[in-house]
Computed example of a mutant assay.
Amino acid sequence: MPSPTPPDLQIKPRQPAFTLAQPWSRHWHGGNAFKSHFFDAMSLLFPDGERFFIDSVRHYRDQVTDPQLQKQIGGFIGQEAHHSREHDRYSLALRQCGYDLDYLERRLKRRLAFVRKHLPPKVHLASTVAVEHFTAIMADAILKNPQWLAGADPDMAKLWRWHALEESEHKAVAFDLYQQVYGSPWLRRRAMLHSTLYFTLDTFKGLVHMLKRDGLLWNWRIWRDGLGWLWGSRGILRPLVRAYLDFYKADFHPWQHDNLQLILDYRREFDISAEAR
């Protein structure tokens, strides 16, 4: 059965110019510590994670005979490399504010090292497929719902929109590759369960650490409002549950969540600005 990925989908790396404010604003998301550190905690996972994704896809690249998928893999690798670089810069700004990123990154680095050493490449790719689904549904929500970043520093909001756009563009590349070289629904479901656990724990750990360094860890209003923003009746994560669960269906494909028009709309922001430079 052919992949539902749009056959003429172009995936190209972009290198927009981002200016991180100096001095860095700890609470860049409208002065809200919880919102800012929720995004910060996710960001610090990306540099090592995306290098792992690149390696997991590159391992199987020579088995791909479809020229369109080959081109999309090249775009995926280029985009993820740029994401890793920009989030490294983001992490440097967090370090300069006194957050202990060595402490926060240690568990992720050890876990990735264990996976690389002891688990087969098909598990690496299945894990990539799982986390790419996480990032795809969150990216889609960021693009569909500008209120996610309402009030944020304009450059930080632009960085997250850029990342969301490219995650949406390449959301099926690792999946299509996985289907070609292995395809087991059981393995990708297991990978998603593990990825959900670790993504949640790592993000929560980062959020707690940064709030503690800010002296806000035990401020109950911060947690009341923050958890309401995430999971309340209008919480940003609640609408994502159904899209997340779709991943466990045997016949799931990322492009069943068709947001191609949204991608085309947001491309104008970055592609036109790139041509103007």
Rank of each mutant, 00 (worst) to 15 (best):
W220R: 14
R189G: 12
T128P: 03
I54W: 01
L262I: 13
K109I: 09
K12P: 00
D155R: 10
V181A: 02
K71L: 13
H194C: 03
R277F: 07
G74P: 00
G78S: 11
R14C: 04
L69D: 10
F46V: 15
D102H: 12
L119F: 13
P67G: 07
L44S: 01
I272P: 00
W24T: 13
P120V: 11
P6Q: 05
W24E: 10
Y103V: 00
A150S: 11
A157E: 02
M210W: 06
L104K: 09
K71I: 03
A113Q: 13
R116D: 10
S273W: 00
V123S: 09
K205G: 02
L20F: 15
Q256M: 11
H29P: 03
K205S: 14
N219S: 10
E169C: 03
V57T: 05
R238D: 01
W229G: 08
Y99K: 09
D153A: 11
G232H: 09
Q256H: 14
E167W: 08
W28M: 05
I236G: 11
L237S: 11
L165M: 06
H59I: 10
P4Y: 03
P185Q: 08
D55S: 15
D258H: 13
R85K: 14
Q180D: 04
Y248F: 15
E80P: 00
N32V: 06
M156W: 03
A113V: 02
L227C: 10
G151L: 08
P67S: 12
H163Q: 12
Y103A: 08
P4Q: 04
R238G: 05
T128Y: 00
A21V: 12
H209T: 06
S168C: 15
A274C: 01
W24C: 08
L177G: 04
D225G: 01
L92W: 01
H37G: 05
D55H: 13
R161S: 02
A21Y: 01
A130M: 07
L94H: 07
L92Q: 15
A41Y: 02
A157T: 02
G206W: 03
D214F: 01
M1A: 13
D214R: 02
F18A: 12
